[in-house]
Design a protein around this nucleic acid. Structure first.
Lengths: 185, 185
DNA sequence: GAGAATACGGACTGCTCACTCCGTTTGCAA
DNA sequence: TTGCAAACGGAGTGAGCAGTCCGTATTCTC
């Protein structure tokens, strides 16, 4: 158990660059874009990409983890707000910024199926945060009581998907309305 | 303009076999499954697959067209029914049988974006059928009036997506509730 | 500033996969 | 039944891509 030295400055910088470039590239070209393209966008050699992420899949997972982490943070933040619409704001925000081909959907897909080891911790973190937010909203009578966290996450995926094919926010509105408590019109 | 002879019997049979096998294989393995796998499943050589569908993409499109055609037919059938819940039955049926990796979502994706030449006719057919069904439902006061055909299709895609991650039908129920007219509780 | 450790770039490898080509087989018409 | 056009099968081809390797460059430590 040797206490590893922190990575060199250029290494840290490059890792960040690769992640950012990957997000861009995969968002535009889809996740089938080649690693070389990512490297080029990052201004870096392929070797460097693979040193930081031993596998293309590892790179994809890192992006997913990054995104889920942000969403979980957002959920916690909203849970801290006294606004009764906090749950809906959160939901809309998540759907709103999933505007690319590397979809939130793909990220959430991992939650639904068989969460890989790498993302299991974040998955749990997210689930927990959403649970708090959801329960509060249900206590407030804002959200119907017959939905659970898993349903909410499935609906997040669904709403993100729907958003891609619609010109406006109507589908999101429909889903949010469906989530409201019956008598909270 | 030579009147082409009808294709030979074995050719017709093989074409059908390939389509069926492709549906199976792509459903299980996703659309990245290889053409050879499809050929094997169909009990046919790769050459045969490519003779009937000059491109892998053409094969995929043929499947999409097939599916959209079925859905459109279903919509028309429901539109002919006097049942006020026809619209909801249709919606649930579509979502219900999209249970594979070659998703309805992928098919509908084509509608949202830039419908390829090959599927444009079916797209129109489907849109028209759904329009009729939707309008009837809105006349009956069963469905809210502020959604259009495009919204419905987007929501179909969304609901199919959501279904993948949920263990039960709750997300579908939520979406259907969101679609109901406000006072039609 | 020197030396060692760490990281870099990108040519290279091996593999997968879509698609082609042609010798062989099958179905159809007369 | 025979002849020929229409299909078939599957080995072969080329392109693209994930991941490796090693000579070179950069950073850190003393």
């Amino acid at each position: 158990m040797t206490a590893a030295r922190p990575p060199r400055a250029d290494a840290q910088r490059n890792r960040a660059r690769v992640l950012a470039a990957a997000e861009q590239v995969f968002a535009q070209r889809g996740s089938s874009a080649s690693t070389e393209e990512v490297a080029r966008a990052a201004g870096v050699g392929v070797g460097t990409v693979f040193r930081h992420f031993p596998t293309k899949e590892a790179l994809l997972q890192a992006l997913i983890v990054q995104r889920l982490t942000r969403i979980a943070a957002d959920a916690r933040e909203q849970a801290a707000s006294p606004d009764p619409a906090a749950f809906f704001d959160f939901f809309a925000a998540v759907v709103g910024d999933s505007a690319s081909k590397l979809e939130l959907v793909d990220a959430l897909a991992e939650l639904g199926g068989d969460p890989t080891e790498a993302i299991a911790p974040v998955a749990e973190e997210l689930t927990a945060a959403v649970a708090v937010l959801l329960e509060q909203a249900q206590q407030d009578g804002a959200v119907r009581k017959d939905v659970g966290v898993a349903h909410v996450i499935a609906l997040l995926a669904g709403a993100s998907q729907a958003r891609r094919y619609a010109a406006d926010e109507r589908p999101l509105a429909v889903i949010l309305d469906g989530l409201r408590a019956p008598n909270a019109e």
